[in-house]
Computed example of a mutant assay.
Amino acid sequence: MHLKNALQKYPRLIVRALVHPTGIFQQIRQERAGTVLAYGLVIVLFNLIMTVLAAVSGLTPELMLPMAIASVLTVCIGIFWLHLFVYGLGGRNGVGTTCRVAVVGLTPTALLGWIPGVALVGFLWSVLLLYLGLQELQDLSKARAVLALVLVFGLPLLLLALLAAAPGFSVAWASPGRVTWV
């Protein structure tokens, strides 16, 4: 019974995330935390399977598979990183709510991230969903939601830029699929 219910809900959640972004957060607010977490696991598993198939078929560089596996860990850490800024900017509806926003926000990236040339569209749609979700579920203003996302994505990029500019740091690309840290 529970599996049948989940199989009916997940496609609706996916469609709403892709075509009705504000409506998805109104719907997800009513869902149990376990349902949202299971939905997140399903879309991440879909992404990993498709990434493996694309890598095995030669459709994507061999670097894609380690990146997909690392992204699963990044999502878990990223939820808490996002919540740090959400809380600092006034979001007081809990880390579980931030998790709901992140899981729904992950949908376009998980569904499209394994497709070369389309992954960027999925990522940008995910950022839009995060923005809308922070407003809807964490009750952040538009400006605070933007600031939270700028900090979440901007600080690591700034750190990487500073690290890349440091003397003695370089990345050598022996081939497109191999990264060597020197």
Rank of each mutant, 00 (worst) to 15 (best):
I28F: 07
T109K: 01
V36E: 14
V86K: 10
V42Y: 04
L82M: 03
L130T: 13
R29G: 00
P66F: 05
G34A: 13
I77C: 12
A143W: 06
L53A: 15
V146C: 08
L37K: 10
A38R: 04
I77D: 05
W81R: 05
V56D: 00
L132S: 00
A110M: 15
F46V: 12
M67N: 09
W81F: 06
A70F: 07
P61Q: 07
L134I: 06
T98E: 13
E31D: 11
S71T: 12
Q26K: 15
L45Y: 10
L53D: 14
L124F: 11
W114M: 02
G78N: 12
P66E: 04
I49Q: 12
R92W: 08
P108G: 07
V103S: 04
S126T: 12
L41N: 03
S126P: 11
M64L: 01
Y87W: 14
E62N: 15
M64P: 00
V44T: 15
V36S: 15
M64D: 03
A70G: 14
T107D: 02
T97F: 06
V72W: 04
G91N: 09
P116L: 01
L134A: 05
L82W: 02
A68H: 09
F85T: 14
M50P: 04
L129A: 08
W114R: 00
S71W: 15
G58N: 06
W114E: 07
R100W: 06
Q26P: 08
G78D: 08
P61L: 07
R29Q: 07
L106P: 07
V36Y: 12
L137C: 03
F46I: 10
F85Q: 13
V56H: 02
L130K: 13
F80V: 11
W81M: 02
W81A: 02
A68K: 07
A38L: 12
V103A: 14
Q135L: 04
V56R: 05
V56Y: 02
L82Q: 09
Q26C: 04
H83L: 04
A145R: 02
M67Y: 05
T97C: 02
Y39R: 09
G122F: 13
S141T: 15
S141I: 11
A54N: 14
F123W: 03
S57N: 10
Y131R: 03
G40K: 03
V121T: 00
T35N: 10
F123G: 04
T109V: 03
F46Y: 15
G78L: 10
I28L: 08
Y131V: 06
V52Y: 08
V75P: 02
L134H: 09
Y131P: 00
L111Q: 02
M64W: 09
L45T: 09
G96H: 11
E62I: 11
S141M: 10
Q135F: 03
E136N: 01
L124Q: 05
A70R: 13
